[in-house]
């Protein structure tokens, strides 16, 4: 089916308008990140030169490298932990159902209706009581179990023929081996989706790190950018925007690489 040229042009115009509107704040911040305070003050749109002075400044004024490393470590741990914990739970619900396992499944799913913010006060007290303030433990462990993740993986595991499991049982393949060598590799799409999603959400987490970090040891970039903004914005927006560019780069790259995957995986989990 061929689209008439006029219609095609119309589509491109609309697409471009939306693209400009959506991307304008980021593009503008990118340009600002190369400007001196005077240029910002004059309301310039293009910087006089693309020098990385502001980026160097951002690294000098904040332990940004430390924060980046922290964010990377925290996000990676949550990603791995969440995929593993959720996959193990989903495996039971699909391949090892027992009397009452459905009830447990619904109990897990019901946690989706509890907003994290409604439980943050006791969680904060708990983590503080364990002496976990300013540790990776506080930033990672609470997020390993996830109703969304369990649900997403369960949906995918359901598409694996149960006969395969029975055959493996008869063939003497252990349950752990079947999980590790068959189920996980066969669910690569969903595992990657969940991994990318949990990395992204952890990297972008704001309120919890704000509560549980009081110094630089494990503080993440999101809190760093807040610091940079409140210290510098009166004087130097260029440096602040350089900081913004540095912290959004990793997630933007991840999103661009995994966009197709995420889109497929998220809708699968949502609809079926």
């Amino acid at each position: 089916m061929k689209m008439p040229l006029s219609q095609k042009v119309l589509f491109y115009i609309l697409l471009t308008i939306f693209a400009v509107l959506v991307f304008f704040p980021v593009a503008y911040a990118f340009l600002i990140s190369f400007m001196t305070p005077q240029e910002v003050l004059m309301g310039n749109i293009l910087p006089r030169s693309f020098s990385f002075g502001n980026y160097e400044q951002a690294f000098e004024r904040l332990p940004l490298l430390r924060y980046l490393l922290n964010s990377f470590v925290v996000s990676t741990i949550v990603m791995a932990g969440q995929v593993l914990v959720c996959a193990m739970a989903a495996y039971v619900f699909v391949f090892l159902p027992f009397r009452g396992s459905n009830l447990i499944f619904f109990l897990f799913i019901s946690t989706m209706m509890i907003p994290w913010e409604a439980t943050m006060i006791p969680n904060f007290l708990l983590v503080q009581g364990f002496g976990w303030t300013n540790t990776y433990m506080a930033l990672t462990l609470p997020f390993f179990a996830s109703a969304f993740g369990t649900f997403l993986l369960r949906q995918h595991f359901l598409t694996i023929p149960y006969e395969l499991y029975e055959a493996a049982q008869i063939g003497g393949v252990g349950k752990l081996k079947f999980f590790w060598k068959v189920v996980l590799p066969m669910s690569k799409t969903s595992v990657i989706t969940l991994g990318a999603y949990s990395f992204l959400t952890t990297w972008n987490m704001y309120l919890w790190p704000l509560l549980t970090t009081t110094n630089d040891t494990v503080r993440t970039v999101q809190i760093g950018i807040r610091q940079l903004q409140s210290n510098e914005s009166a004087t130097d927006w260029g440096v602040v925007m350089a900081g913004v560019m540095i912290i959004i780069l990793p997630t933007l790259i991840l999103l661009f690489l995994g966009q197709k995957q995420l889109q497929k995986g998220l809708t699968q989990g949502a609809i079926k």
Partner: peptide, 28 residues
């Protein structure tokens, strides 16, 4: 276009808010 349209998902709340804080700035 799809990449551009989905891009805001990759930008954290903190980073977005800081960018918009500047867009809203009264004088600059």
């Amino acid at each position: 276009y799809r990449t551009i349209f989905s891009s805001t998902m990759g930008i954290s709340v903190a980073a977005s808010a800081v960018v918009w804080l500047f867009l809203f700035h009264p004088s600059v």
